[in-house]
């Protein structure tokens, strides 16, 4: 293992670090560091508001997953809605609404 992996593994890690930082900082600069929401956080909040308007949401039954990318970010909100209609108990309503390109602040 060591022989083969040493051939493939020794790719430099600095470019990875640079890319990760660029994505992260682009996001942190737009949100300004003062608690202002970025687009994804805003979407999350508003989607939850809409859902809450229609059903009583149990906070423990909500799962939120987020993955910020350079060109594409995903926000996945998974809400369990109890007894939507007659017979079926606790149906799961999965909302995966924002598999969308998120505008990134342009690189200088």
């Amino acid at each position: 293992m060591t022989f083969l992996s040493s051939i493939f593994k020794r790719r430099s890690s600095a470019p990875v670090a640079r890319d990760r930082l660029q994505i992260l900082l682009a996001h942190e600069r737009t949100s300004g560091g003062d608690g202002k929401d970025d687009l994804l956080a805003q979407l999350h909040r508003e989607i939850m508001e809409v859902i809450k308007r229609h059903v009583a949401v149990d906070q423990d039954k909500v799962q939120i997953k987020l993955d910020r990318g350079a060109h594409c970010s995903t926000l996945e909100i998974d809400v369990e809605v109890p007894g939507l209609t007659d017979a079926k108990p606790a149906e799961k309503l999965a909302a995966t609404p924002a598999a969308k390109a998120v505008p990134q602040s342009k690189k200088a």
Binding site: R20, L66, D67
Partner: peptide, 26 residues
């Protein structure tokens, strides 16, 4: 989060949990 490679996946944080905006599991 950055050292763990999870920086893109942060939704809620310790303060959100303390202030009740999110529960621990979230």
């Amino acid at each position: 989060d950055l050292v763990m490679g999870a920086e893109r996946r942060v939704v809620f944080d310790l303060i959100n949990v303390i202030q009740g905006d999110a529960n621990l599991a979230q």
